[in-house]
Design a protein around this nucleic acid. Structure first.
Lengths: 136, 136
DNA sequence: GATATAACTTGTATTTTGCAAGTGATTATT
DNA sequence: AATAATCACTTGCAAAATACAAGTTATATC
């Protein structure tokens, strides 16, 4: 997997974070769930960044094992599954928002996107609270 | 390297963050610089997590190329080099602090360390400001 | 019953990582 | 002055992780 099983066990909170959600693909799945209303395996596969299918399966398993997401059957379509964030997962919102703020400050590329940043600037408290509370 | 050169170019701020500092070893180097007063190649190698030497060299090069750190000669010891954070690097402080806060909430391991968390709880504004301002 | 869809799994080539050992430029020791 | 340490890497190779293509299973639709 990535670094599963044997956490470095240093007790460091930064390391704990890195071990549970801190790899590129895990964070992108969390972004899709938190910011883009995406829910299914197919949704995640279709994200711009192009995650490969075996890695996605691996990361979903990992995030579920860590209690960041839960998997459930879609009641309307029994061949589809729905992933959603737990409270532990939604509590990652401030981290994602800080990353967006940081990029807003330092990403000088002309095509840098700022739609979420605008929401944060307009009403961070409210926006963050909405992300952290159950069912959007 | 990790994902150098061709950024996915999606324009997404989360992706930009992941591409510039978002891998395990980069973040640990930043932690050492920001929170632990470590400065040299040898310091980073000695960190608990055990980064290997070729990966460390690679990450330092990458972080320098991204403008997160700068390398300079140690004036006191001419065979040693000193790494330090740029403003862009110090601006990562809020992200690191949010990771620490998140881990403080959700890391249930008995040996989870909370010394930095205590500082944050005591005076987040002041602590964060001290991390973000030049020369500690 | 045949075809399609959603969510994976499997196989394999490529890339990245980890580990051990080696190099070059100082600096300290005998 | 020669010898040994130290510091910051680099190199070579085995092991692990990743990307890509193709295949499988369980529904669902025609």
């Amino acid at each position: 997997m990535r670094n599963d099983g044997k956490k470095r066990n240093s007790g460091c909170p930064v390391t704990y974070g890195l071990d549970t959600f801190g790899d590129r693909w895990s964070l992108l799945v969390i972004r899709e769930l938190l910011l883009r209303g995406k829910k299914t395996y197919g949704d995640f596969l279709a994200a711009d960044e192009g995650i490969s299918t075996n890695i996605l399966a691996d990361r979903l398993k990992h995030l579920e094992a860590e209690g960041i997401i839960v998997k459930s059957r879609d009641p309307d379509n029994r061949r589809s599954f729905t992933y959603s964030l737990t409270q532990k997962g939604r509590d990652l919102a401030p981290i994602i928002l800080e990353i967006i703020i940081w990029s807003g400050m330092h990403d000088k590329r002309p095509h840098a996107r700022r739609n979420v940043l605008k929401k944060i600037n307009k009403d961070r408290e409210g926006f963050e609270a909405s992300l952290r509370s159950p069912q959007d």
